[in-house]
Simulated scan of single mutants.
Amino acid sequence: MTVLTRRQLLAGGASLLVLASLPGFAFAQEKKETVKAAFVYVGPVGDFGYSFAHDQGRKFLEEKLGDKVETSFVENVAEGPDAERVIRQLAQDGNDIIFTTSFGFMQPTAKVAKQFPNVKFEHATGFTTGPNMGIYNSRFHEGRAVLGTIAAMMSKTGKGGYVASFPIPEVVMGINAFTLAARKINPKFETQVVWVNSWYDPAKEADAAKALMDQGADVITQHTDSPGPLQAAEQRGAIAFGQAWDMQSFAPNAHMTAIVDHWGPHYVTSVQAVLDGTWKPGDVWGGMKEDFVEMSPFNPKMPEDVKAAAQKMVDETKAGTFQIFTGPINDQSGAEKIPAGTVIPDADLLKMDWYVEGVKS
């Protein structure tokens, strides 16, 4: 495994870029003895959240495929022009497949993929595909619903605080799933959202959690990647949930459970397909049933009836008998948005830009 700095990545020449742009430089498939796979992370691998989970997936890939795969990663890549430069350099450096793991990497990945038709690209959490660009995602909202159930059963104030990154569909979906599940337990439950406009900013995230608790929230959840909100909850005696990985070590009393992202099996499947010469630009969206999402161990401090209710939701989600986005669902104004018995289609979930009743944003 090689760790590359952005300075090293941006220092390369442009000869491969010119070659990749020539007419007739077509996407080809052939079996390979070894594969070079690169990963682009929006945060540090030490965030113990989203980027950390992807890097655990990379390590899982190395463990399973051994000397058949050589991996590298670039961390702390800003979404936008910097991402495009990094992705292009990784393509120039001879990587066979490049995984770009943040929503804001979508357009840069699509642009570079067109310039390097012989390189395979996979983008996480987006929707743009191409002849050599696939997408993969996790049904995070299934886990958010479990968190909402726990929150409503354990909250004394009926108010949850949600530290959110950016108002993209993935995040909106999670806020809505959390709130819908909570209101099935307590119809008056409210979710107050604070946007920090960052995926990883420990101080800003902690300040947001403190502000939410000052407003009466006694449950803190997050769609940001540092343990900051958890640590703030621990200090205040609130309960909280980790993001993307088990964060209990940072808040042993506050941390009730966390959504754990399992990316490793997908990475193994994709790289094995490159080795076999059978890779195709897929559209993968896995959840609990596919082992893309699981809940970390419940805190022993959690009451038994809460554990049972949370586990029941996990079991029914895996079995396919429960889907949180099933009507009737009212929007933020209280008007019916989804009729009774109707399940919101995946295509609509992936462009969700509205909030359910009970969300205060």
Score class of each variant (00 low, 15 high):
residue 57 G to M: 13
residue 88 R to S: 02
residue 334 G to R: 03
residue 151 A to S: 02
residue 61 L to P: 08
residue 4 L to C: 06
residue 84 E to L: 13
residue 358 G to S: 02
residue 17 L to C: 00
residue 297 P to C: 06
residue 187 P to Y: 08
residue 257 T to Q: 09
residue 180 L to F: 01
residue 129 T to S: 09
residue 19 L to K: 14
residue 339 P to M: 11
residue 281 P to D: 08
residue 244 A to T: 01
residue 180 L to R: 05
residue 101 T to W: 08
residue 198 S to W: 06
residue 2 T to C: 07
residue 356 V to T: 12
residue 22 L to R: 13
residue 166 F to Y: 15
residue 218 D to N: 11
residue 215 Q to A: 14
residue 342 T to D: 08
residue 202 P to Q: 07
residue 18 V to I: 14
residue 123 H to Y: 00
residue 347 A to E: 12
residue 40 V to Q: 02
residue 24 G to N: 11
residue 230 L to K: 09
residue 160 G to L: 10
residue 26 A to P: 07
residue 294 E to P: 03
residue 252 P to N: 04
residue 67 D to C: 07
residue 135 I to T: 15
residue 85 R to C: 06
residue 29 Q to R: 12
residue 17 L to F: 04
residue 316 E to A: 02
residue 336 E to Q: 04
residue 343 V to C: 03
residue 299 N to M: 04
residue 200 Y to R: 05
residue 54 H to I: 14
residue 11 A to H: 00
residue 322 F to S: 03
residue 130 G to V: 03
residue 268 V to M: 09
residue 43 G to R: 14
residue 164 A to T: 01
residue 345 P to M: 00
residue 36 K to C: 02
residue 299 N to F: 07
residue 105 F to A: 06
residue 77 V to M: 07
residue 54 H to A: 08
residue 247 M to N: 09
residue 226 S to P: 00
residue 340 A to D: 12
residue 332 Q to I: 08
residue 334 G to L: 03
residue 7 R to L: 07
residue 138 S to P: 02
residue 337 K to G: 09
residue 112 V to C: 00
residue 102 S to R: 08
residue 112 V to D: 01
residue 216 G to E: 06
residue 22 L to M: 12
residue 335 A to C: 04
residue 191 T to K: 01
residue 107 Q to F: 11
residue 299 N to Q: 05
residue 12 G to Y: 06
residue 36 K to S: 03
residue 222 Q to H: 03
residue 37 A to S: 13
residue 29 Q to Y: 00
residue 327 G to E: 05
residue 92 Q to C: 12
residue 62 E to T: 03
residue 284 V to D: 00
residue 106 M to T: 14
residue 325 F to V: 00
residue 31 K to S: 13
residue 218 D to L: 06
residue 46 G to W: 05
residue 324 I to D: 02
residue 25 F to S: 13
residue 34 T to F: 00
residue 47 D to T: 10
residue 76 N to K: 14
residue 3 V to G: 06
residue 114 K to H: 10
residue 272 Q to P: 00
residue 115 Q to G: 06
residue 349 L to F: 04
residue 252 P to Q: 04
residue 167 P to Y: 13
residue 16 L to T: 14
residue 102 S to I: 07
residue 21 S to A: 14
residue 8 Q to E: 15
residue 298 F to E: 08
residue 31 K to V: 10
residue 326 T to L: 09
residue 40 V to H: 06
residue 79 E to D: 14
residue 82 D to Y: 00
residue 239 I to W: 11
residue 196 V to K: 08
residue 183 R to M: 12
residue 198 S to K: 15
residue 202 P to Y: 01
residue 259 I to S: 08
residue 21 S to R: 12
residue 86 V to T: 05
residue 164 A to F: 06
residue 304 E to G: 10
residue 271 V to M: 07
residue 300 P to Q: 03
residue 298 F to R: 05
residue 269 T to F: 12
residue 129 T to K: 07
residue 166 F to H: 13
residue 116 F to Q: 03
residue 279 W to C: 03
residue 22 L to E: 12
residue 348 D to I: 07
residue 358 G to C: 00
residue 115 Q to W: 00
residue 108 P to D: 13
residue 18 V to H: 08
residue 66 G to K: 14
residue 224 T to L: 04
residue 219 V to D: 05
residue 296 S to Y: 11
residue 209 A to L: 06
residue 336 E to R: 10
residue 250 F to W: 11
residue 82 D to V: 12
residue 90 L to Y: 05
residue 75 E to D: 02
residue 312 K to V: 11
residue 82 D to N: 09
